[in-house]
């Protein structure tokens, strides 16, 4: 199998895919499917959004050094997830985004979700995790200046984004199970996931508390040394 060779075709696809094909898939699914269209729409939208973002990153020229740092941070997220009581993905994504920009933040968040699911199991939740962590990184990149300045804000952001992540993933669990959103089920899902959510939030908070500054210094040094 070859990549698409003709540059013209490639250019057309670049326009057609986001503008026509993706909305068509979403709408078509929503119209055709009856019982589970919410689920379908959510999966399709998440997958399309992730693909669009990543396509945007693909088109930019990224230097080898930034790529290596991104790969290093992704791998660190995965290795960190393997340590018990240690869920540094959110925190690391946020820190990376602050120092290297929202785009790299999105890349690191989304890709660490994809990669770590190799060790934790891929599933239909993968596009959601990718989107959620990616967005956490993207927004952290947009808020980089205040986040860098105020430690309290950074900790709040980390805590909130971690909590929101858990809540949104619970929404998705309900959608997957029930086909549509049901507040009672959502509460039930949140209830069962509560210990995990709390542990996650606390570890996230502690991680940022202890490591935000040292990691920031290290990234800053590398940024200067690498000439980024």
């Amino acid at each position: 199998m070859r990549g698409i060779e003709s540059p013209r075709l490639r250019r057309w696809l670049r326009v057609l895919l986001p503008a026509v094909v993706m909305p068509a898939v979403v709408l078509g699914g929503a119209l055709v499917l009856d019982e589970r269209r919410h689920l379908f729409v959510s999966v399709a939208v998440a997958a399309c959004a992730v693909l669009l973002f990543l396509a945007g990153i693909e088109r930019r020229r990224i230097g080898s050094r930034r790529m290596v740092i991104a790969a290093v941070m992704i791998a660190l997220c995965v290795v960190g997830r393997l340590i018990p009581f240690f869920k540094p993905v959110t925190a690391l994504t946020v820190i990376t985004a602050i120092y290297l920009g929202g785009e790299t933040g999105f890349l690191v968040g989304a890709m660490s979700a994809l990669l770590s699911n190799f060790y934790f199991g891929q599933g239909p939740w993968t596009p959601f995790q990718m989107l959620a962590w990616g967005l956490i990184g993207l927004f952290a990149g947009l808020l980089a200046r205040p986040l860098k300045k105020s430690r309290a804000f950074l900790l709040c952001y980390g805590l909130l984004s971690g909590l929101l992540f858990s809540l949104v993933m619970d929404v998705w669990t309900v959608l997957w199970y029930n086909g549509r959103f049901d507040p009672a089920l959502w509460l039930a899902a949140m209830g069962t996931a509560l210990p995990h959510t709390v542990l996650y939030a606390v570890s996230n908070f502690a991680f940022l508390w202890l490591l935000a500054r040292p990691i920031g210094e290290k990234l800053e040094r590398v940024r200067i040394k690498y000439g980024l």
Partner: peptide
């Protein structure tokens, strides 16, 4: 790699780093 060679490379490096 079919979709995006650059992302595939980032992933490949990350796979090696883990």
């Amino acid at each position: 790699g079919r979709l995006s060679p650059r992302l595939a490379l980032v992933l490949s490096m990350a796979f090696r780093f883990v």
